[in-house]
Amino acid sequence: MPEIATFVAELREAFGDATINEAVARGKAGEPTFFARENGRTVGTKSADAFNRWPADGSVRDRHYCAGCDGSCVGTGRRYSERR
Rank of each mutant, 00 (worst) to 15 (best):
G71P: 05
G58R: 00
C73E: 02
R79H: 10
A56F: 07
E3Q: 09
E10C: 02
M1Y: 09
A9H: 11
G71V: 05
D49E: 10
R37H: 05
G16T: 10
V8C: 06
E22N: 12
N52C: 09
E22G: 04
A29N: 15
K28L: 12
E31V: 08
A50R: 13
G75H: 07
R26I: 04
C73I: 05
V43C: 10
A36N: 05
A48W: 09
P2S: 11
R53Y: 03
T6Y: 06
R53E: 08
R61W: 05
G68T: 07
A50H: 12
A36S: 14
A56P: 08
S47W: 07
D49W: 08
E38G: 01
R53N: 07
T42L: 07
G44N: 11
P32Q: 09
K46C: 03
A56Y: 08
G68C: 09
W54S: 01
F15Q: 05
A5W: 03
W54R: 10
R26K: 15
V43E: 15
D17A: 12
D57N: 13
R41V: 14
C73M: 04
L11T: 02
R41H: 14
F7N: 02
A50W: 09
G77N: 11
T6L: 11
R37P: 00
F7P: 00
C73D: 01
C73T: 03
F34I: 08
S47L: 11
A9V: 05
I4G: 00
V8D: 01
E82L: 07
G58Y: 01
Y80T: 08
T42V: 15
T33A: 09
A29C: 13
I20L: 08
G71H: 07
S59M: 02
F34D: 00
I20A: 05
S81I: 12
H64K: 15
C66T: 10
D17P: 00
F34T: 02
V24L: 07
G30R: 12
R78L: 11
R26Q: 13
G68D: 07
M1H: 08
S59N: 12
P32H: 11
A67G: 11
L11W: 05
E82C: 06
K28H: 04
E82H: 08
V43M: 15
